[in-house]
Amino acid sequence: MKSPLIPLIACLLLPAAVSAQEADVGAELYRAHCATCHGIEARGNGPMAPALLLRPPNLRELARRNDGTFPTTRVVMRIDGRDPLVSHGSPMPVYGDFFDGDDTATKAETGQPIMTSRPIVDLLAFLENIQE
């Protein structure tokens, strides 16, 4: 049985800055799963963007649109499906099941721990690194 304290302790020990390795892995995941809609440069202009009812956001401006704070919780919940977004008659593709398994704690923008998966933490690192 897993102790519920292990993710909390892991979250408290997380480094403040994201590692280059996490961001590199996140960039690969982004290209494979996100660029079709959000674009290679994450500006919301992927080849599928014109077919969507809601234009994909420019992911380089997430922090700017959130008063300078990267919206970690909102990003995690959009990716894993806890906060679905209807864009083309159905929710944004939910990658929670695809990225499921490797439970990892990270810090929300409030400093509180949030549980997600290692691939989503890697995507977060990539997205945080590309903020303008």
Rank of each mutant, 00 (worst) to 15 (best):
R60D: 03
F126L: 08
Y95A: 01
L124G: 03
C34D: 06
T104P: 02
G81S: 00
F98C: 10
D102A: 12
G26Y: 02
V94L: 10
P84E: 04
D97G: 14
R64N: 06
Y95S: 00
A49K: 03
R31M: 10
P50M: 03
A35D: 09
S19M: 12
T104F: 09
E61Y: 05
I114L: 09
G68H: 04
T69H: 11
Y30L: 02
G46T: 01
A51T: 11
M92G: 02
L123T: 06
M115R: 08
G46C: 03
V75D: 01
M1P: 11
A125E: 05
I114V: 14
A32R: 13
E28G: 08
K2R: 13
A32G: 06
H38Y: 08
A105H: 06
D102F: 05
L123N: 03
A108G: 09
A27M: 06
L52S: 07
M92T: 13
D83T: 12
H38Q: 08
D24P: 07
S117C: 08
T73Y: 00
P15W: 09
D80C: 04
V86W: 08
R65P: 06
A63R: 06
S90G: 13
I114F: 05
R74Q: 14
V25H: 00
V18D: 12
M115H: 03
V121A: 07
S90N: 13
R43W: 10
R55Q: 15
K107A: 11
G39W: 11
G111Q: 02
L29W: 03
A108Y: 06
R65A: 15
E28I: 05
A63C: 10
L124E: 02
M1A: 15
R43D: 15
A17M: 10
T116W: 02
R65L: 15
D122K: 02
P113C: 13
P50K: 06
I130F: 05
T69N: 12
Q131V: 14
D102E: 15
L124N: 02
M92W: 06
V86N: 03
L54P: 04
K2V: 15
I9N: 02
N45A: 04
L52I: 08
A108E: 10
I120D: 07
A17C: 09
P15H: 14
N129L: 07
P57V: 15
I130T: 05
A10I: 01
C34Q: 05
L123A: 05
M77W: 07
A10G: 03
